[in-house]
Write a protein that binds this DNA or RNA. Structure first.
Lengths: 155, 155
DNA sequence: TCAAATAAGATGTTATTGCAACTATTATTT
DNA sequence: AAATAATAGTTGCAATAACATCTTATTTGA
């Protein structure tokens, strides 16, 4: 009874947070290794893929879509631009916006990045059925929504 | 057909990686805010809790248990020691090992950290039943195991 | 119309994290 | 027993990411 601070295993390890962070860190390492040949880091590929999906797009829109801070977005885009994968163009209608496009080089690298991400995805979801995977995504989506809501409440 | 690089929404957004990283980043923010009063950052609390669970423990054991690089562990422990929550003691049987103990201050803060983590956990798993949560943990566990195996293969 | 407010981005700083390379200590091999 | 291996931990460096603050451009309101 005097050991009120002693913890059960449940309390320490069995919460999604621990798994999420371990998975995140390990995936970062895997993805970095996969994309190293293209000089694309784990902090940039999401932006490259999002631009490939919707072109042109602004940094603001990217930040909101990916739920990433706008300063992080700015720096990631700067790297992608420095590598020659992305091109910036001021929006003629509103000069505050930078419209982002893939360059020729960017269009060439996107399928390779997509394949690399596919490899990582299939490695990591081995042993999980399609039904289970859908379920996993659904639950992760709920967790993420809870977190985003939390953020709105703070504003 | 010339647009072989154009992506479907599935390909870009519907993979666990995106959710994992977004959840990870947002949880880091939430936890940092919750633990700010105790001068404990999002990079330290896991170690504090793991030491509370098993005392004494070495940095090596912490790194393996938490799947975190030993240099990260070293730095986190250094911070916890600087804040006065953790005490280091060379293992008399093998001076390479540092045995880690909670200090009095550490024992006092652990329940508060636990409560804070509990708050974060219940906020983020809102709308998820116990059965679904168990399922989520199970699936995350599989993903993490796949990633750890990947690591072993590289050795 | 012109000042104030708002919006998009950029920059500087800080925290978390991992790799490479290093020190110190213990174990192994010859 | 001395030389070599292996192990635990530390340090320096670089990448990711967020917050605070600043700049520039647009919109709003008086």
């Amino acid at each position: 009874m005097s050991e009120h601070w002693r913890l059960t295993d449940k309390g320490v390890t069995d919460s999604h947070g621990q798994y999420i962070s371990a998975i995140y860190r390990h995936m970062q390492i895997l993805i970095s290794a996969e994309l190293a040949p293209y000089q694309i880091g784990s902090g940039q590929y999401i932006f490259l893929m999002a631009i490939a999906f919707q072109q042109p797009i602004t940094q603001k829109a990217l930040s909101e879509k990916l739920l990433i801070d706008k300063t992080t977005t700015a720096k990631a885009i700067a790297k992608l631009e420095a590598e020659g994968y992305v091109r910036r163009e001021a929006d003629p209608a509103d000069n505050r916006y930078q419209l982002l496009y893939l360059t020729e080089s960017g269009r060439e690298v996107v399928p390779k990045v997509q394949e690399a991400l596919g490899r990582v995805k299939s490695k990591t979801r081995k042993g999980i059925t399609d039904e289970e995977y859908d379920l996993l995504l659904g639950l992760l989506k709920i967790v993420l929504r809870n977190l985003s809501k939390q953020e709105e409440m703070l504003e």
